[in-house]
Amino acid sequence: MVIVIWLSGLTVILLTSKNVVVLKGRRKIGKNKKRYIVFRVVGGQGQLTSKALETSVRDAVKEFVGRMWLEISDPHVIFYSPSTMSGIISTNRLGYRAVLASLPLVKSVAGMEVLLVPLRTTGSLKKAKSLIRTG
């Protein structure tokens, strides 16, 4: 009896590992965790606001990859420091590449010619803020 249970257990493990049998509920979608992009603004003499930056970034993402990826990546400028001219964009693991690739397409913010330079991407807001503080 024990041998039969043992052998049937081994069979199930073997078949599922080789994808011969797919158990119900096996497919999982990974959690779309947050990613934070630390960026710096080059150019742009006047005072930029995080709202104006966010509008430009969202327009650039929509221009490059379209509405679907804009909704997936959902970029928001959650912090911008005019003194250091650096800020943080919040996005997620699925869409952060789309946001990074779209940043050069931001040619101007509120009528001022600027360049957004991504410095680092990180998974925690605390780390992103410390990166800005250390410069």
Binding site: G43, L100, A101, P104, V106, K107, V114, L115
Partner: peptide, 18 residues
């Protein structure tokens, strides 16, 4: 020929990967 036409390396790598 203008600031806004420059490409940051991280953006460029992701642009091509995309």
């Amino acid at each position: 020929s203008r600031i806004s036409e420059l490409w940051a390396p991280l953006s460029l790598v992701n642009y091509i990967t995309f």
